[in-house]
Amino acid sequence: MSKEQALESAEHAGSGVRGAASPEATAERTITLELFRYHPETDSEPRFQSYEVPYNEDWVVLDAINWIKDHVDGTVTHRWSCRMGVCGSCGMMVNGEPVLTCAAFLKSYFPFAVRVEPLVNFPVERDLVVSMDGFMEKLEAVKPYMIRDDVNDTSGGEFRQSPAELAKYKQFSMCINCMLCYAACPVVGHEEEFLGPAALALGHRYNKDSRDQGFAERMDVMLSDEAMWGCTFVGECSVVCPKHVDPAGAIQQAKAMGAQEYFKRFVMPKGAGA
């Protein structure tokens, strides 16, 4: 195959992620994907299944999994949506590292095999899909919404905020709920009740919002043992976060605010309480 032909077929394959192309006919090189397989109705234990996928420099791991599902094995189950690092659906363990598979290029692994598993620290529902129930419940627990008595009262106009006030929480509002931080957090692995990085950072995001008045109410939840005090500041949540939210930093800041609140309540049990 000439260079032009190879390039053309690569482009063709790249644009045909959803099955329009048949790159297996033209691709010279392949890469092995080892997928974690678990179907609860037939498997009592998970297993790994290997697939040969045409190697394409422009492909990400998600493209390769989609190609397997479209061309080789339709029973492979995985979550994905936007393919551009915004929706937070396609987080998986790739060679042991929690990543968005839409942002993990095959060329960073080639020519070695790529092992894909569902995010660790979550129960597996099917193949690469984990259960999000516990995560959703933890997000809810920190009351991640504006709390104030006049929240629906617009008679005085909008609740204004200066750029300096916005800067205090903006970073923590960038979370896309991809759950990579939960897979990177050893405490989540040890302690199922631990609220975890994303939920605590989200709680902190509202506590730092100048328009919010729910600090005391939120702190009732965040001050409990398995909320922020479970965190030992390993810091890997911030390392794997694709949106640079820095949940580890948020939790340390929240601890300092929480300790102040704790002593305030100790001194003034009634006045400072929720």
Binding site: A141, E193, L195, L223, D225, A259, Y262, F263
Partner: peptide, 27 residues
């Protein structure tokens, strides 16, 4: 292990002075 009721905001109500020990740890 923490006596949770399994739902909603009231599930993590155990407070055992971790804030106090953390403040000492931090200082």
């Amino acid at each position: 292990m923490s006596g949770s009721d399994g739902r909603g905001g009231g599930r993590r109500a155990r407070h055992s002075g971790e804030a106090f020990w953390w403040a000492l740890f931090s200082a």
